[in-house]
């Protein structure tokens, strides 16, 4: 079975693999970050966020000397699965580190469900 964890990422059980839910590309083991299975780009944020005005540093866009736009792409379909805005060289964020044993207990058939929507 597959469980959607984000808009674009599923975890397959019982294999415990990250999968792109747009193209089924394998993004690696779920006990590691899906980011390790992505293609990653370091972009100048001004390529996305338009500069408005005439000032070199204060222009309603990001100053690329302060912050970089990190994009994580699915290697299969090129979907942009996540972004980070980080100072140059700052460690990437391991954002979702699930307790996979508990995850399996919750989702595999015969296990306790996540509960019902309260009225």
């Amino acid at each position: 079975m597959r469980v959607s964890i984000t808009e674009y990422l599923d975890i397959e059980l019982p294999s415990r693999r990250w999968l792109c839910n747009r193209c089924d590309a394998d993004l690696g083991p779920a006990d590691r970050s899906y980011k390790e299975g992505c293609l990653i780009a370091n972009r100048n944020p001004q390529e996305v966020h338009p500069v408005i005005g005439t000032d070199a540093h204060f222009n309603f866009s990001f100053d690329p000397e302060w912050i970089r736009l990190i994009e994580f792409y699915c290697p299969g379909c090129g979907t942009l699965v996540e972004t980070e805005y980080l100072p140059p060289g700052h460690p990437l964020t391991w954002d979702i580190e699930l307790d996979l044993d508990a995850f399996e207990r919750r989702h595999l058939p015969g296990q306790i469900s996540g509960g019902e929507m309260p009225l």
């Binding site: 964890i5 964020t93 954002d95 699930l98 995850f103």
Partner: peptide, 9 residues
């Protein structure tokens, strides 16, 4: 909700 460690900066 799913047990785990979640991070943001």
């Amino acid at each position: 909700l799913n047990d785990g460690i979640y991070r943001s900066v």
